[in-house]
Amino acid sequence: MSDTILKFQNVTFRYDGDEGKILPPAVEDLSLEIKKGEFVAFLGHNGSGKSTVAKLSNGLVVPESGDVYVLGMNTKNEDDDIKIKQTVGVVFQNPDNQIVATIVEEDVAFGPENLGIEPSEIRRRVDEALKVVGMYKYRMHEPHKLSGGQKQRVAIAGIIAMEPQCIVLDEPTAMLDPEGRRDVMKAMKRLNCELGITVVFITHYMEEACQADRIIVMDDSHLVLDGTPREVFSDVDRIRGLGLDVPQTCALAKMLKDDGIDIHGDSLGVDELVNSLAEILNRG
């Protein structure tokens, strides 16, 4: 239990429909555990319940049945509310709608200020958070003049400045261009490697998911797959059946394998596939 940061226990949640209409559950009977220090990717097509998981993870919404625990604290317990939100920070898809202040560094300071932290300590945290995400030199800029990727990194810094142990990102790269996506992924990895923060992120990009230690796939409000990228992408047909893509590298390896060509490994990344292809070409 001690190394579990986030625990979902038979969680079911549904949104309120208009005029008392009862909607199908967004998340149904979901159980999972996230360990400290993990780098986890959530996959699933739109409407599969992934975003709801993000909101459930720090008590923005609470389960209809079942429980969510953050370091053993139940998110239904309002007394622990601040502590829970300080432990698990959530970053959303649209960076524009998360930035509160008119100057970058003041926005990053917003969280710590709300927590009533000493000004000198806030200053230290803000500077550090901005450095981790590579936005320090933009600290005096106006957020609306930054690019999407830069804004998203400011939003991440705003959460980091509260010194959370876990950060959950709901499609942080969906609205960004390739360069913005690369920068945000880089920042997320640094948080995980250098600061030891648990990172859980939702994405539609398989190349991004491949960089995680663990992939959880949701479909139709349920958890359907949970494993390392190697395990998850080994079942190419299953992934496609769930309306998701497989990384091109895995797809090619699979095609070759189906054709009876003896290719080693699952060829998750570019370099891995280059090596295995080189090997079979040498053999051939």
Binding site: I82, Q86, G89, V100, F110, P112, N114, G116, P119, I122
Partner: peptide, 17 residues
């Protein structure tokens, strides 16, 4: 939602950087 995630509670006990 974003403000709630950053522990905004109406400015009670707020400090300023």
């Amino acid at each position: 939602y974003a403000m709630t995630c950053r522990c905004y509670n109406g400015g009670k006990g707020k400090t300023t950087m």
